[in-house]
Nucleic acid binder design. Structure first.
Lengths: 213, 213
DNA sequence: CAGTGTGAAGCGCTTCACAGCT
DNA sequence: AGCTGTGAAGCGCTTCACACTG
């Protein structure tokens, strides 16, 4: 994988959008696309698309555009989703269970390797066909599946402990769906999803009509 | 509400974090806090906290710090969550149902005014004690509850139609939990949550250890 | 003094504009 | 001619540094 310099986080986030756009264009049989066209679908500026894609080398043909299949494959490589990635989910409450049942993961290259919880009520039960495992099994499942990603979907108060356990088990990329921040060593990357926070921002937008998001 | 100029979106997002920090500090009975302390808990720079809070006017006392209860109340006002906001949820599948059952909304000032779906299998059933309503009831529920916020949790293909219906019903702030982008008139604010996208970004981080998020 | 409020510097992302391929 | 790739300008957010104040 020819990888040059450091890519802005914002660019990586757009990569995921471009990937979705190209997947769709490929599905309808389109062979090439201009930066203009990709930009249109992704909802960004065309120069932005060109600059972003240029991080991957010179993928386009001048006077022609980009080869859909080509760029698609390339972005999959850059994002590391050419082959299936194993993910563990911690927390089998409402949200954890919903995520386990979410078909979109599989379609986009993520396989759920295990679902964990520490509540005796839940351990042993099944969600969407998968047995809920005790946290004591975490390390062996992570290793057995070479899982590198984890989703934390537990109550706020339990999140820090879960993150610690994940780090201990060798996970270094974590998606935290619990509200509130958690601490982790520097080499661990944590991203947050907080639905309530999003609602609060939208609520702000209500008063501030001059606000554009 | 003394509101001056345009606030950067990044600042609004941090407001939600400060609010959480202050709520917690208030809960443990702390009366004042310095920008340093707030910054520590929120995981940002102290100067950032001061600059952000200065958008609300001069809330702090020099040589002392900020009055916790004061700033807390002020931020609630700025975010428009001093009093309960009604939210409608569209889509009663895995994720929509999980959100309806999520206690965190209520605690932070959001009340679910109605859950909708267009599947005859689901209409009339209950999720977490609430009856699933047909989309035909949307407009009257929105009006009856003066709902201004909506969460869309339907399959990607159905999202655009749902958004159109919401706009038609008078909603202008939408949280889209469905993958993919949707179009809406300029005055409508849409924010997106896409768990798979977050996983893709994390997957990128796996290869790029020089990447900091 | 301790800690806020803020102009100014710093920095990184976005957009422009155009040279350079095909 | 058409469209990419990219240096440079533009712009907005973050951080610094310090005047100012209780």
């Amino acid at each position: 994988m020819p990888w040059h310099y450091d890519v802005p986080e914002a660019t990586v986030e757009r990569f995921t959008r471009y990937l979705a756009v190209l997947r769709e264009l490929g599905r309808v049989g389109q062979e090439t696309a201009s930066s203009e066209e990709i930009a249109e679908h992704a909802g960004v500026n065309a120069a932005q698309v060109r600059k972003d894609l240029s991080y991957c080398g010179e993928l386009g043909k001048r006077g022609v555009g980009y080869t859909v299949a080509d760029v698609h494959r390339h972005l999959e490589g850059v994002l590391g989703v050419e082959e299936e990635q194993s993910v563990v989910v911690i927390g089998a409450g409402n949200i954890g269970s919903a995520l386990v049942g979410y078909a979109g993961f599989r379609e986009r290259g993520f396989r759920i390797a295990g679902v964990f919880d520490n509540s005796p009520d839940r351990i042993g039960r099944r969600v969407h066909g998968r047995e809920i495992l005790p946290m004591t099994r975490l390390q062996s499942v992570v290793r057995g599946n070479r899982a590198q990603l984890a989703i934390v979907a537990v109550p706020a108060g339990a999140a820090q402990g879960v993150v610690d356990a994940l780090v201990e088990a060798g996970i270094c990329c974590i998606l935290n769906v619990a509200p509130g921040r958690v601490k982790a060593p520097h080499h661990v990357v944590i991203r947050h999803i907080d639905t309530t926070t999003e609602l609060e921002v939208l609520s702000f937008c209500l008063k501030e009509s001059g606000f554009k998001a």
